[in-house]
Amino acid sequence: MWPQIDKKKGNWFPAGLDSQNLHGLQGYKVFISIAIILGDGLYNFVKILYKTLDALYKTYKSRELPVVKQDGLPALSYDEEERRTQVFLKDRIPIWIPFGGYLGLGVVSILLVCLLIFHPLKWYYMLIILIFAPILGFCNAYGCGLTDWSLATTYGKLAIFIIGAWAGSAHGGVLAGLAACGVMLNIVSTASDLMQDFKTGYLTLSSPKSMLVSQAIGTAMGCVISPCVFYFFLKANKDLGAPGSAYPAPYALVYRNIAILGVEGFSSLPKHCLIFCYAFFAGAILVNIIRDLVGKKWSKWIPVPMAMAIPFYLGGYFTLDMCLGSLILFIWQQINKAKADTYTSAVASGMICGDGIWSLPSALLSLFGVQAPFCIRVP
């Protein structure tokens, strides 16, 4: 598509624009990608919301908790399930802890985030977010438990549009929308993550209090470690976040332009870009519908729109790692499917962990000017 659209230079968009100018070819790349992401997110949001409401209705009618069965795991016997329930409820967390913690952190967020850090995000914007976030957090946690799909990013995009349009471009709507997205995304995402951890505690006969304390310790460590890692990256990579660099941070560009779109509207888009956006938005929904209709046997051969969106403008090299990993898994399954299915998660976790841990030494080496002798990349 890009060579064909580039031929319209001087007609659809001005010639001589910078390669990263959103009024040129880059605008088509970014906003078409955003349309795919929004279409995919909206479809899955509606689908999971329907499943959540349907499960809640059935639970209300039957007065029994829904049982979510996991493929490949044997069903628990009554005695085993009863024992897990007794152990899990023995150290029940007092109700004042979540309520008091949420109110306390809400006040701290308003004081620090709104008054000291992000001034365009007014305190009443934050108050509205804090009021509605628990409702959305419940929906996300319940839906994630039923479908194993967290829609935290979709709720974050919703906050971008609402708060960004409310603030307006004259009052820092882009920054306000992005800050609101960060707050909403973290609250909603933490809700589903914490419920998954509680489920792990239930299955391993662990105390919910110990799970909560572990979460608090991990969060406190992250508050110190994450800024330090980011500082090293920032010092070692002066072009951090720039397209084409070693660390392009693709989602940063996507979310920023979603905020711009929410604040400025569609008038700033290049010619015919909105038509393309409509088409790809509808295409993402159509692909998801087809994936659900054909069943698991054939849906694995149909690409996921969300996974296509980022490489859509970032480039092919972003997908080579996934392609290579999928090829290795495919060959492994052909040789020994039982072992492949058993150890896939462990191998993938090790690769992700190793890649993440190496990023810190790599940043430290870059601070001292140490560069790799060569780098292979496919543009």
Rank of each mutant, 00 (worst) to 15 (best):
G182Y: 07
P305G: 04
V263M: 07
V347F: 04
D197A: 15
A252I: 09
V347S: 00
R291G: 08
I187A: 03
H171K: 14
G325T: 05
F13Y: 15
L76A: 12
G244C: 13
P311S: 12
F198V: 07
F138Q: 01
A242G: 03
T154M: 13
I275P: 00
K8G: 05
L194Y: 12
W332A: 15
V188L: 00
I352K: 09
I328F: 09
L89C: 10
G265S: 03
G172Y: 10
Y125F: 14
D292V: 00
A141D: 02
G168V: 08
Y142L: 04
C277N: 09
I135E: 00
K8P: 01
I187D: 01
G100T: 04
F132L: 11
M126V: 03
V67G: 00
I34T: 09
I162W: 10
L25M: 12
M322R: 04
S189P: 00
K7A: 12
K157F: 11
R377F: 04
T200N: 09
D6R: 14
M1V: 15
W298A: 04
W12S: 10
G143K: 06
G104K: 05
P311H: 13
P120G: 14
R291N: 07
S206I: 03
K7Y: 06
F198Y: 15
L175Y: 05
Y343G: 08
V378G: 05
L158S: 13
Q70V: 05
H119W: 06
Q371K: 13
T147M: 13
G41A: 15
I95F: 05
A279Q: 02
G350Q: 10
L327V: 13
A35I: 09
A338K: 09
L22Y: 07
G172L: 14
C114V: 02
S192R: 05
K58Q: 13
A249V: 07
L205S: 04
L178N: 06
M184V: 06
P208I: 07
T219W: 05
G27L: 10
A363L: 07
D91R: 02
Y57G: 00
G262S: 09
S189A: 11
D292H: 02
I162L: 13
A179W: 03
V213Y: 14
I357C: 11
P361H: 01
L194V: 11
K271H: 12
S192K: 06
C181H: 12
T190Q: 12
F280T: 10
S268T: 14
I97Y: 07
L65G: 00
L324F: 13
G201Y: 05
A159F: 09
N237A: 01
T342I: 07
S192D: 07
G295T: 05
Y50L: 09
N186L: 03
L274Y: 08
G241R: 08
F280R: 08
C273A: 14
F318A: 12
